[in-house]
Computed example of a mutant assay.
Amino acid sequence: MAEPCLAPLKNAPNHPVHQTLASAANLANLLPTGTVLAFQTFAPSFSNNGVCHLSNKYLTAILIAVCATFCFLSSFTDTFVDSTGKLHYGIATFRGLYIFNFDSECGNDQCGKKDLERFKLRFVDFVHAFVSLLLFLIFALGDSDVQSCYFSEVGTEWNSLFMNLPLGSGALSTFLFTIFPTTRRGIGYADISAHI
């Protein structure tokens, strides 16, 4: 039996289905998934699997602070493709994009440095950063090892709150990120074609 022939979509990158799927695929870059994964990797050993001594409490607090800082700052990272097709990574500032891997051999016009002012910080960037930070802190405090380390004396009501809060806050932040999208394309963003 012959397979059905699928006609290609006209202007596939600009088609609404492509844009919707690209937005859904890149939602992982807006949510603090990488930071949560890194935290969950180190949290069991830093907190001694929830059996915390004073040193474990300090190590866990430092881990939460470092991951929270990284989560907040990663909301301001962006990606830029210059006229030669080279991919540049940077962080948004009030003046424009500060590029990490800027090649000093290319001129300002060739690398698009004069156009980097369009990547300035905006209000929506701070909204996304604070929502990501809050979401990470909710997930970090909802971790069972962190709860055993810092909140071992709380009652069953608080345990129920800690268990259900990450799911609800994740759904709410996903809704907010979908309603208030950002044009910021962080490091590792999958769909860079819409940002060239």
Rank of each mutant, 00 (worst) to 15 (best):
M1D: 14
E3T: 07
A7N: 06
L9F: 14
L9D: 08
L9W: 13
N11C: 08
P13R: 14
P16E: 12
V17A: 13
H18I: 10
Q19A: 13
T33E: 07
T35Y: 14
A43H: 06
S45C: 08
G50M: 06
V51F: 04
L54K: 07
N56P: 01
Y58T: 08
L59N: 08
T60E: 05
I62H: 05
I62P: 02
C67W: 01
T69Q: 06
F70P: 00
C71E: 15
L73R: 08
F80K: 03
V81I: 10
L87M: 03
G90C: 10
I99N: 02
N101P: 04
F102W: 04
D109C: 07
D109Y: 12
C111R: 00
K114S: 13
D115F: 02
F119A: 02
V124R: 15
A129K: 01
F130P: 00
F130A: 08
F130C: 09
S132D: 01
L135E: 03
L135A: 03
F136L: 01
F139Q: 02
D143Q: 12
S144H: 11
S144R: 09
C149V: 02
E153Q: 11
S160I: 06
S160K: 03
L161G: 02
L165Y: 01
P166C: 03
G168H: 08
S173G: 06
F177Q: 05
I179V: 15
I179M: 14
T183N: 14
G188T: 12
I192Y: 07
A194Q: 09
A194M: 09
